[in-house]
Design a binder for these strands. Structure first.
Length: 260
DNA sequence: CTCCATGTTTAGAA
DNA sequence: CTTCTAAACATGGA
């Protein structure tokens, strides 16, 4: 479920399990659709005999430096995830990459739908520049958030999800932040007063932090997320949750808590 | 069979 | 230039 909080949880998992262990073999099981701008042999050559050194996250990208000097950049599409396995652990379905360690354990990258991409990068800043990513959403404080929204005229939900405005917010967490701020997703950014924008920033920040703290499981029952379904009762007012189409995606709202 | 799903990219319209 | 829409990409679950 990879938006910013999910990717941050993957990053911590990689840190806790896979740093400074020599990759004895890098297995590329997928065809050309997975590796981004790098051949399987080049990718293997940069990984094999090397180790993950330190990780960084920018938006929905997870990067790790290697002692070969390169960085690996993981993007998870809609269904990707990373998991470290012990020698005896069963493998999940749809494994596309496996980084084998000498003790028989391995770090696997799995992706059911083939929308994820993995590649090499010079550095995190370089990747962000190439991809045109805005600052990481969690790195924005109030004034920086205002600066990113300055002059924008689009609707608030697509703006939050625009990776060049800020990186990391997707469909689910934009819905959650807007719900908790009491903002309708189709409100135009330019009609929001400064206090409203700051409120949104504070709420978004808290939502992302909380989701990471609970490792994206067991969400508070007064959040929209566990009730993100057409006709479900709103956890705050008891009204009915509705599904709208906003920029081609489903947006869930409580019309009473989030007036248009 | 139909519709839906946490993402990105592209083309074209306004 | 910005913004919006639709379609495409792959696959599986309801």
């Amino acid at each position: 479920m990879p938006e910013l909080p999910d990717v941050e949880v993957f990053r911590r998992h990689l840190d806790a399990t896979s740093l400074d262990r020599e990759v004895s073999r890098a297995e590329v099981r997928a065809g050309g659709e997975l590796l981004d701008d790098v051949s399987a042999s080049t990718f293997r050559r940069h990984l094999q005999g090397h180790a993950f050194r330190r990780t960084h996250r920018h938006g929905k990208f997870l990067l790790s430096s290697l002692d070969s000097g390169e960085w690996v950049a993981f993007h998870f599409g809609m269904t990707g995830f990373l998991r470290a396995l012990g020698p005896e652990d069963p493998e999940p379905d749809h494994v596309r990459l496996a980084f084998h360690f000498e003790d028989g354990g391995r770090l696997v990258y799995a992706c059911q739908r083939k929308l994820g991409r993995v590649g090499l990068a010079e550095a995190p800043e370089e990747l962000a520049r190439e991809r045109g990513l805005g600052p990481d959403a969690l790195a924005l404080d109030g004034p920086a958030f205002l600066e990113r929204l300055e002059g924008r005229t689009g609707r608030v939900k697509p703006t939050l999800m625009n990776q060049s405005v800020m990186a990391g917010v997707g469909n689910v967490y934009s819905d959650e932040a807007l719900f908790q701020t009491g903002l309708h997703p189709e409100r135009s950014v330019d009609e929001l007063a400064e206090e409203r924008r700051l409120d949104l920033q504070g709420t978004l920040h808290a939502v992302l932090e909380t989701a990471i703290d609970i490792e994206v499981t067991g969400f508070p029952d007064d959040w929209l997320l566990p009730h993100r379904e057409e006709g479900a009762p709103c956890p705050r007012c008891g009204g009915e949750v509705r599904r709208l189409r906003v920029s081609g995606r489903s947006a869930y709202v409580c019309p009473r808590c989030q007036p248009a």
